[in-house]
Design a protein around this nucleic acid. Sequence first.
DNA 1: ACAAATTCCGGAAACGTTTGCAGCGAGGCT
DNA 2: AGCCTCGCTGCAAACGTTTCCGGAATTTGT
Lengths: 336, 336
Amino acid sequence: MAVTIKDVARESGVNVSTVSRALNGEYGVHADTREHVVAVAQRLKYRPNRVARGLVTGRSHTLALVVSDIRNLFFAEVARGAEDAAYRAGYDLVLCNSDLDPEKQMRYGQSLMEKRVDGILMNSVAVLSKKQQEQLSGLGVPIVLLNRTAPRGVFSTVCADNETGGALAAEYLLKLGHRKIAHLTGPRHHGNMTERAKGFVARLAAARRPVRPVLLHGKNNFQGGVELAQKLMAQHPDVTAVFAASDMMAFGTIRALMEAGRRIPEDVSVMGFDNVELASIVHPPLTTIHQPKYEIGQAAVEILLRLVGRGEHQGPEHRMFAVELVERQSCMERKA
Amino acid sequence: MAVTIKDVARESGVNVSTVSRALNGEYGVHADTREHVVAVAQRLKYRPNRVARGLVTGRSHTLALVVSDIRNLFFAEVARGAEDAAYRAGYDLVLCNSDLDPEKQMRYGQSLMEKRVDGILMNSVAVLSKKQQEQLSGLGVPIVLLNRTAPRGVFSTVCADNETGGALAAEYLLKLGHRKIAHLTGPRHHGNMTERAKGFVARLAAARRPVRPVLLHGKNNFQGGVELAQKLMAQHPDVTAVFAASDMMAFGTIRALMEAGRRIPEDVSVMGFDNVELASIVHPPLTTIHQPKYEIGQAAVEILLRLVGRGEHQGPEHRMFAVELVERQSCMERKA
DNA sequence: ACAAATTCCGGAAACGTTTGCAGCGAGGCT
DNA sequence: AGCCTCGCTGCAAACGTTTCCGGAATTTGT
């Protein structure tokens, strides 16, 4: 059906190997013949079959991105950064949604392996058992994770400086004079969020007059924010500031607080984390910690590309991005 | 390196062809030998090389999704629906961001072709020239579009009933008593949005006392909404209701209106289209037209799968989803 | 009990590339 | 003038599967 390298070879009167070399710009083929072959290939609209090439070279020129849910704005940004970088390098990016389901995650790992992807970009392996993690790393394909992981040394990692992000939030709230503070965070095994919490409570504890925040765990999405905020109001009605571990959770807490008649920021200050586009859109505009999502995705595939470059994966690479506080209107000084 | 079918064959004392048949569950292999082969394969942790298989079968078990930008919430939803459906069928989904750039779009088409994807899910070909469109359809791979397209018959399509969506919006605003109405829409060649506009103005014109809305074209995102709203206030300060062609644009117009001191919905009613999750989150909660984004993505790959099923692509399929008005708090009756 | 049909399995071609190796001619060096 | 080198090209193997075809073994039918 399609025109193959053989057709080009026949049509231009040379051997397929010559065609291959000419088209791939290798040394050892005369300029004239190369020109001729290229011309014929163009005339025939020859398109190399990358599957066949992949079979012999062992490289598929494909990367995979497995996230919990692409509808999460954070991952959408990361995905865009990753895809752009992959595109520039001539790689494709296959998208996988794991919902953080261990079984799904492993099945994706297997399937991607069978398809011989050259590298995998994964948001977390925290939900996997030790054995499953080893199984993954034993797949022989470089993997970069989107959070710092416990067993450093096996996987590469790219992430924001979550810990100082948490510290920044604490500092800011402290500066505003808040003393009754809560932190609404995600599931317990969520690496990035635990780091945010860690930095947050550490900084609060290190204050001249230390404060111990209320800590609540829940789902990392809008609904989770709503639920946690309701719980918070029931259990600790006196908090004046809450730091949510993600913008989506912050949106949820704002919603719940408002519905309960609290004003933001007059009655309670709310902070988020991520700085998604919507953070500047909602009302009130959300004060939050910015992390460079697009750049994270980009950096991740760059690392991946380097890793696949040097055959057997050398030592993993790690990269951490700085975060910064972006001050908007969801926080204010504690009223005296 | 990896264990191949030959290893399994040698280890289990049968021919590779038998292994292949046994593992693929074909007829013509004794139950005992199949069992044995399967056991050996499992013991050796054999994973078939899908690249090799793809080379001979001509099927890569891969679909592609090319959207303008995955960060667009609409596409993120569609992508999730598509990926879920693909996953269920054992297919992979490669993600491409075109920015609606014709060149990028064509390059993706070529590249995906070379990789022998089995089908392509594309949001629009409107920016492509006639010739480019033919080139795409001549690629020999089924393509389904996310909007109704002019030259019906070549591509399959899946979309919401944008036209009656527009009509619903008109009807609603009319019912609320509005007479000075504006419609903020996207770029002129945006298929779905022109349909929305069409339904909208048609319904307004069909009213007992027909009204002709102000029509403004701009970018389909938050910033576009801001700009259009500003322009609108300058040119037609007397409008009492605006229908934005997407939720993101609606968010932008709300922002611009509020900053100009207008109250929503007391001074001006605002409607959107899409019903993204955020629509219920922002303040005020946005009245909008719901379209089933997830289901659209899902349906699109289902069609694709059917199309690749029957080898040479038969006639294209078309599917349209119903929309519905979801009433929240961004609209109210025109004050007498 | 013999022909025919059926079941099971092995051999080998094929898919479309890349790539190591060898051959061949021409040109440079001594 | 002979030899070596070097640039260019063809040949063929290899990548890991699937699948067509034919043969052997077994079952069925009469």
